[in-house]
Each structure stands twice: as structure tokens, then as C-alpha cells.
């Protein structure tokens, strides 16, 4: 498979080297409550290295989405420390958030495509936000969409796309700016098994280019077909982590 030429990145070589040493994500005894509700995450410690691929599983309501939202800076931990790219972001002010988010790609179950923009325009958004020039954007977007098999759907609106196609558009948008971290929350929820497998293979390709991937799904059978480290959440606690290389954490031996 041909790799997309994506040159837009806010990461310098020095930074990449730094993150390679220290890890992309480090959670230390993180707990989370929504308002004054119960703790939906409890003492979660987790460390993800640059360029690693992790599954996050657990039953419905276990806290997978909440954990990803913490990593995406949409929530702040009630206790503990969240470090992203070797920076403590537990109490990050909102004005510092966009710059960090530009280093993180997200794919949600709902895909979050903007309905009046075409597939290509949706995928172009991160580059537009990063103020890339129009020619460069067009080239990268076209190439990436062809790479995910949507070369003929560039100008289609999301409503004209199948679930699987929308999902690929969402993934393309999440990775177009070459993020250091890709967060995928149940992206396979709405598509058949075949499409799900293809999606994971696609993410593995990106992972090889250096993007750390966290893939959350409640589908353990899907997870078992890949040899990636898997973290299992239950009731807000990290109960099990399959000890595979690329993962460090207190729960590794559990």
C-alpha cells in the first residue's frame, strides 16, 4: 500500500525525539468524576510509547470513552496526572488546548463529519486549520482519500456515503495532519466485520509511520485477532492489560 505524502506536522525532529524517549501518554493514578457523580475512572495508571498500538476494551459503561476524552483534553481528571507529549495537561487552560489537539487525531463512533462539506473538504479541515496552502492541501487530501479507497467519492457529501465510507473519511481526517496520537472510539461500531478489519489494518499502516494509536472497542473478539497490547477497563478500573511489548504500567502483571 502506498503511503500518503503528508508533510504537515507541527512536530519538529527534536520534539519527535523527545516524545520517543518519554512517551506520548502517561496517566498517573487518574480518577474522574462527572460533576459530583460517582468516579467513572479510578486510579488509572497507563503509559503509551511513541508509535505504539493499543486496544482499550471493556463492557459498556466501563469508562472507555471517558478515558479517551481525558486524552483528548475534553475532560480534566478529578485526581491524578495526565501527561501528553511529556507535558502535564491535567490543568491545561483552554487556550493551550487547540495546539495540542492538532497533534491528536480522533475518530468517534458518530464520525463527526460536517454535513455540508464534501468528503474532501472534511478531510482538508485539519490542514486548513493548520494554515497549509491550498495546493498542498488538495494534493494531500486527494492522495489520502485515494489511499483509503475513496478516490471517486472526493466530492460527495457525507449523506451520500455509506457508513463504511464515512468511517474512512473520518479516519482520513483524523490522520491527514500526521498526528502523534490517534484516538479511535468504537469506530467499528456501525460497520460490518469486513470493514472493521480493513479499518484496523489501515490504522496499523499509519501506526507504522509513527502515530501512536489507542483503539477503544467493546468487541473483544476483534481485539483478539491482533497482537497489540490490550487494556481492559471495568467499572472505571484498569483490571487487566495483556503484557505485550510497548506497554508499561503497574497493571501489566495483573
Amino acid at each position: 500500500m502506498r503511503r500518503p505524502v503528508v508533510r504537515i506536522s507541527t512536530v519538529t525532529m527534536a520534539e519527535a525525539f523527545l516524545t520517543a524517549e518519554t512517551g506520548v501518554v502517561r496517566l498517573e493514578d487518574v480518577s474522574l468524576q462527572y460533576g459530583s457523580g460517582p468516579e467513572v475512572l479510578r486510579d488509572v495508571s497507563l503509559s503509551l510509547e511513541t508509535g505504539s498500538f493499543h486496544f482499550l476494551t471493556g463492557p459498556s459503561g466501563a469508562g472507555k470513552t471517558s478515558l479517551l476524552r481525558l486524552l483528548h483534553l475534553a475532560l480534566r481528571p478529578t485526581r491524578g496526572t495526565v501527561r501528553l507529549f511529556d507535558r502535564d495537561v491535567s490543568r491545561l487552560g483552554r487556550k493551550h488546548r487547540p495546539a495540542l489537539r492538532r497533534r491528536i487525531g480522533v475518530v468517534s463512533q458518530e464520525f463527526g463529519l460536517i454535513s455540508h462539506l464534501t468528503a474532501a473538504e472534511n478531510v482538508a479541515l485539519p490542514l486548513r486549520i493548520a494554515k497549509a496552502n491550498a495546493g498542498e492541501i488538495r494534493e494531500n487530501v486527494t492522495e489520502l482519500l485515494r489511499w483509503v479507497g475513496l478516490g471517486r467519492e472526493l466530492d460527495e457529501l457525507p449523506e451520500a456515503l455509506s457508513e463504511g465510507q464515512k468511517q474512512r473519511v473520518a479516519v482520513a481526517r483524523a490522520v491527514i495532519a500526521r498526528p502523534d496520537l490517534l484516538l479511535a472510539d468504537e469506530p467499528t461500531g456501525n460497520v460490518d466485520e469486513n470493514a472493521a478489519m480493513r479499518l484496523i489494518h489501515l490504522m496499523e499502516e499509519l501506526n507504522k509511520v509513527g502515530t501512536a494509536v489507542v483503539f477503544a472497542t467493546h468487541d473483544e473478539s476483534l481485539v483478539s485477532r491482533f497482537g497489540h497490547p490490550t487494556h481492559v477497563l471495568d467499572g472505571g478500573e484498569l483490571v487487566r492489560a495483556d503484557p505485550v511489548e510497548g506497554m508499561i504500567g503497574e497493571h501489566a502483571e495483573a
Partner: peptide, 15 residues
């Protein structure tokens, strides 16, 4: 909704 999507992919208030 669209604004939320833009913010999620790193758009700042200025954008």
C-alpha cells in the same frame, strides 16, 4: 455541533 467538531480537530477560538 460543527463548532464542536472543529474544536475537536484543533481549531482555536480565533479560527
Amino acid at each position: 455541533e460543527e463548532i464542536g467538531i472543529l474544536q475537536a480537530i484543533g481549531a482555536g477560538d480565533g479560527y
